[in-house]
Design a binder for these strands. Sequence first.
DNA 1: ATATTGACACGAACTAGTTAGTACATTATT
DNA 2: AATAATGTACTAACTAGTTCGTGTCAATAT
Lengths: 214, 214
Amino acid sequence: MANEPRLSRKNDPEKTRQDILTVATEEFTTHGLAGGRVDAIAAKTRTSKRMIYYYFGSKEALYLAVLERAYRKIRSLEADLELSNMPPELALRTLIGTTFDHDEANPDFVRLVSIENIHQAAHMQRSSEIRELNIPIINTLADILERGRDDGSFRRDVDPIDLHMLISAFCFFRVSNRYTFGTIFRRDLSSPELYNRHKTMVADAVLDYLKAQP
Amino acid sequence: MANEPRLSRKNDPEKTRQDILTVATEEFTTHGLAGGRVDAIAAKTRTSKRMIYYYFGSKEALYLAVLERAYRKIRSLEADLELSNMPPELALRTLIGTTFDHDEANPDFVRLVSIENIHQAAHMQRSSEIRELNIPIINTLADILERGRDDGSFRRDVDPIDLHMLISAFCFFRVSNRYTFGTIFRRDLSSPELYNRHKTMVADAVLDYLKAQP
DNA sequence: ATATTGACACGAACTAGTTAGTACATTATT
DNA sequence: AATAATGTACTAACTAGTTCGTGTCAATAT
């Protein structure tokens, strides 16, 4: 597949679109929406600025396309973990580990979400695709919580969205605030040592909380 | 030295500086560094754009001044809680409540920190004032942890900076990600109901974690 | 087989509006 | 008088978006 023998294939719209989106993602995640330069994106692309406007219409629309693509990617990754067969405690530990690793592995996504929050989620709200995004993790959590209460392993009665927030907050913060936190406390938050310690810590903290006597 | 303001006082550099900083804080926290407009700041100030450059030299320097002022403010608030006389568990609950309320009450600070992280803490690193900022909360936490281990109320051995991160992450995330999280899960994260529930939740989760058998 | 056509894909150079920063003059304070 | 503080009006550079033109491909006509 390395060499396409056909010389004549030059137009490749889908590839061009994806190329623009990839470059734009990097530009926006490193400079923000206002700080990102369309000319800089054009220069790093195999194509031209004209094409950016041809395919996406405006800088904001391009940013939104970047955001939607990022959310589409996480949604596709989130499904199929087969947690419903596991005992509740193991299922939850697995889910927390997955969330932790997801944020760790996708700093671009974390940064885009941070940028969206600075803009008060204005673009996300205008996107029906993202707004109607139904995060399946909530149903999974609700199921785990219910089973855990039923079999007596969880004694606390917690709202699944609150629980998701408790988990997400730590995993997200570790990545989103890596630079300021690292600077102030002189810590490299991307070191393997801290990765392991923190991953264990969130899981333990959440499980201890759910198991404790209210 | 507290002088009564002179009648003929018209030049008031310090007031002008503070006025500019206040307006600039609002501009940068709502639009980011690149998105914030010097002209917009000048228009909302009692003074002119000329004065912004007279006092601060450049847009970036103004932004840094805003950031430094924000950090100076939190440092001054952080001290004197007189936690060392309280029993460890109560001391920690008080400290967590204070952190929680601080982030809740200072969304501007939270937003500035988010913005700094998008810029990879570049400005903070150039500021010796912020870089050398020694967050006293770590010593307080270390003291509480030691006392808690000594009197047997805490069974886990936790690094104070890790603990600070665990606490901060939740308190910060609630504010920093208010918009995207609120949009996706259709929740108003600034409602009094959630304020109470979440404040109790972090404290319980952290305490349960420290008290649990490792 | 080859020419024609039209919709799509693409590029270089340009434009209109914006934005950070400045020159120069003026007023206030000591 | 000397210096600090301030206002007006500007400019040089930048930046989002556009104009106008060329190249590609496949279907149809000749």
